[in-house]
Computed example of a mutant assay.
Amino acid sequence: MIYAFDTYYYDDYANTVCIAFEDWTSENESEIFTEKTDITSGYESGAFYKRELPCILSLLKKIDLKEEDIIIVDGYVTLDDDGKIGLGGYLYEALDRKYAIIGIAKNEFASPDSQRRNVLRGESKTPLFLTAKGADVDDILPKVKQMHGGYRIPALLKKLDQLSRA
């Protein structure tokens, strides 16, 4: 199973949503998990994970993960070649490195990262930015390209974004 997470922040709470789907080419989700949580910390430039990681970890308590399951986050897993990690990297560590964590980001991070891959989908000239831990990023790249939907953002990830904002 693949579990994709996104969180949207309102004034006084965060809405975290997870869409579960069977495989990379799935058109529809198998299940949707949602949770509203109090915001435990304000936005801190360069430390986004401090705000979102608790939300994801809380929602994960409702999910029975299996060893082969994959988790997708809206953001980065690795940030540079010096070992700096993003939200997905902190999630990978928080889950004791047991699950593959895939980061699919919409905005480019400035630092060079030899583990980051650009993914062009549909007719878009603007890439998505792919990073991973617990899986080979080069094995994941064609799978992200194959995800359902003809646009830059795969259909299920677009739906995830919309649900988190609802």
Rank of each mutant, 00 (worst) to 15 (best):
Ala132Pro: 00
Ser58Cys: 05
Val119Glu: 03
Asn28His: 09
Asp64His: 07
Cys18Asn: 10
Lys158Asp: 13
Asp23Ala: 11
Leu79Gln: 02
Val73Ala: 05
Lys133Cys: 11
Thr16Gln: 00
Leu53Tyr: 05
Leu163Gly: 05
Val73Met: 06
Asp138Arg: 12
Arg152Gly: 07
Leu79Tyr: 03
Ser58Val: 02
Ile153Tyr: 01
Glu31Gly: 04
Thr7Gly: 06
Ser111Gly: 09
Tyr3His: 14
Phe109Tyr: 14
Asn28Gln: 13
Gly83Phe: 10
Lys133Tyr: 12
Ser26Tyr: 01
Gln162Ile: 15
Val137Ala: 04
Asn118Ala: 15
Leu65Thr: 12
Ile39Cys: 02
Thr131Pro: 12
Asp64Asn: 11
Glu35Phe: 15
Thr40Tyr: 15
Thr131Ser: 10
Ala110Gln: 14
Val77Phe: 11
Lys125Phe: 15
Arg121Cys: 05
Arg152Tyr: 09
Ile104Val: 11
Lys98Tyr: 14
Glu44Pro: 03
Pro112Thr: 09
Gly42Cys: 03
Phe109Ile: 09
Ser45Asn: 06
Ser45His: 09
Phe33Cys: 02
Leu141His: 15
Arg165Phe: 13
Leu95Tyr: 08
Ala132Trp: 00
Glu52Thr: 00
Gly42Ile: 02
Leu95Ser: 11
Tyr151Thr: 14
Gln162Ala: 15
Lys62Ile: 03
Phe109Thr: 02
Asp38Cys: 10
Glu29Ser: 14
Leu160Ala: 09
Thr126Tyr: 14
Lys66Gly: 09
Glu44Cys: 14
Val119Tyr: 02
Pro112Leu: 08
Leu160His: 06
Glu108Ile: 08
Thr37Pro: 03
Ala135Asp: 10
Tyr151Trp: 14
Thr16Arg: 00
Asp6Ser: 13
Leu65Ala: 03
Phe21Gln: 00
Thr16Lys: 00
Ala20Glu: 07
Thr131Ile: 13
Arg116Trp: 04
Ile85Asn: 10
Asp12Tyr: 06
Glu68Ile: 07
Gly103Ala: 00
Lys61Val: 06
Glu67Val: 04
Cys18Tyr: 07
Lys125Ala: 15
Ala110Tyr: 10
Pro142Met: 13
Glu27Gly: 03
Ala14Gly: 06
Ala4Cys: 05
Glu67Gln: 10
Thr25Pro: 02
Ile2Lys: 08
Leu53Gln: 07
Arg165Asp: 11
Thr25Met: 13
Lys125Asp: 13
Leu130Asn: 00
Pro154His: 05
Ala4Arg: 10
Gly88Trp: 03
Phe33Ala: 08
Lys133Arg: 09
Leu59Phe: 01
Leu87Ile: 05
Gly88Ala: 12
Asp138Gly: 06
Lys62Met: 07
Thr25Lys: 10
Gly122Gln: 04
His148Lys: 06
Leu160Gly: 03
